[in-house]
């Protein structure tokens, strides 16, 4: 499954991405608002699902090698966060779904 398909599955709006980045395959998801927990994960190239709208979400995604960041609960990231996502080449999108519902949608999409 590509990142683009996961955006679609969660009805997400992209804030920054590229066609090449959207075509990257993704098979893992890490969902947390606690970046300390995300840093503990051993998942390979995950999609980071979080409602934490700060630079640290992007930096954490970069450090753990995440293929993208999905902001849940309809939160709107500040412009600096989108700017950092662009600088570090981390695709960034937002969805109105709650974290739980976004994870359910992602789980169903990945199980197909």
């Amino acid at each position: 499954m590509t990142l683009s398909e996961l955006w679609h599955a969660t009805d997400a709006t992209t804030l920054w991405t590229t066609p090449e980045a959207d075509a990257v395959p993704c098979a893992n998801v890490v969902a947390s608002d606690l970046m300390s927990d995300v840093l503990m994960t051993d998942e390979d190239c995950p999609l980071l699902v979080t409602s934490l709208v700060s630079d640290q979400s992007i930096r954490t995604a970069h450090v753990v090698g995440a293929v993208g960041v999905l902001i849940v609960n309809g939160k709107l990231p500040p412009p600096e966060m989108a700017k950092l996502a662009e600088t570090l080449h981390i695709p960034l999108a937002r969805t109105a779904l709650s974290k739980f519902r976004a994870c359910v949608a992602l789980g169903k999409a990945l199980a197909r």
């Binding site: 608002d33 300390s36 840093l39 503990m40 979080t50 700060s54 640290q56 954490t60």
Partner: peptide, 17 residues
């Protein structure tokens, strides 16, 4: 600090890990 997504008490143990 916790509101910023950190301070879960995992920093040093994770760095060691």
């Amino acid at each position: 600090v916790k509101a910023l997504g950190f301070g879960a008490g995992m920093g040093l143990p994770n760095a060691k890990r």
